[in-house]
């Protein structure tokens, strides 16, 4: 301590203090800011392998350089998140034309999806695949998530995320069993009919809240008893009218019948 005190008037002391201050601030800032970097670092090999996969599986529609044509969108700037979502959920490569690409079993390995994503991400900057921390439901607030979900998502996906109909055969899919990563990616990329919810309109913390809410809806016991698919008044009304009314009519018939 005395050695340090003796040197406190050294010409370089002020510079050292400033440097130390900057270092501490920088480290502290990096520690509290959530990681926005690529979740997986893509190597040049990944990009090359991804290009091969792209040419074989995607270029028929999206073009040899992913430039798109006619109704097939350009993939330049859609980012790794879009690829991970579309290919990871089996929606792409498109299996048949129709109002909407359905969720099917993904035919690609995890590694291949990563390579494809790396190639598309190399074409232009776009949203990256979220890190494990970004989609950690335990860091989310369920009740806040439910508010955000009801304000922004429930109109299409239903209050419980069970999905619902849109126009002309399109639909908002059921969110049950969708991985948190895919939920996150859908929000930032806006696949198909879905709007984009970037980090300014729904902050990363709010996205985590939504993921936590969706998990809670899936795992928690509904206090109201049998949920009847949790799709709202349609199934509940059907049961109330068909079962409830039949019972009442049955009672009325019994009341009016004469004993034998």
């Amino acid at each position: 301590m005395t050695a340090l005190a003796a040197r406190r008037r050294h010409p370089l002391a002020a510079a050292a203090i400033v440097l130390l201050g900057l270092l501490v601030t920088g480290v502290a800032y990096a520690a509290v800011t959530p990681g926005r970097a690529q979740a997986t670092t893509a190597s040049a090999d990944d990009v090359a392998a991804g290009k091969k996969l792209f040419l074989a599986n995607c270029s028929t529609c999206h073009g040899l350089n992913a430039e798109g044509r006619n109704e097939f969108p350009s993939l330049i700037g859609v980012g790794a998140a879009a690829v991970d979502f579309q290919v990871g959920t089996g929606r792409m490569p498109l299996q048949a034309t129709g109002p909407q690409a359905p969720k099917v079993v993904n035919k690609f390995s995890e590694e291949e999806v990563k390579q494809l994503a790396a190639y598309v991400a190399s074409l232009g900057p776009g949203p990256a695949v979220p890190s494990a921390e970004d989609v950690d439901a335990s860091k989310g607030d369920v009740s806040k998530g439910s508010l955000i979900f009801r304000t922004n998502c429930a109109m299409c996906h239903n209050f419980n995320g069970k999905g619902g109909a849109l126009t002309q055969g399109k639909y908002a899919p059921n969110l049950e069993g969708v991985t948190p990563t895919h939920v996150y990616e859908a929000m930032v990329t806006g696949p198909q009919s879905m709007p984009v919810f970037n980090d300014s309109t729904i902050t990363p913390q709010e996205k985590r809240d939504i993921i936590a809410y969706l998990q809670a809806v899936e795992t928690d016991t509904p206090p109201g008893g049998v949920s009847l698919g949790a799709i709202g008044p349609v199934s509940e009304g059907l049961v109330a009218w068909a079962v409830g009314l039949s019972l009442l009519v049955g009672c009325a018939v019994w009341l009016g019948a004469k004993a034998s």
Binding site: P195, N198, S200, T201
Partner: peptide
């Protein structure tokens, strides 16, 4: 600039 093309805000 908070809104990207395709963004919706209530």
């Amino acid at each position: 600039e908070d809104l990207t093309i395709g963004s919706v805000v209530h």
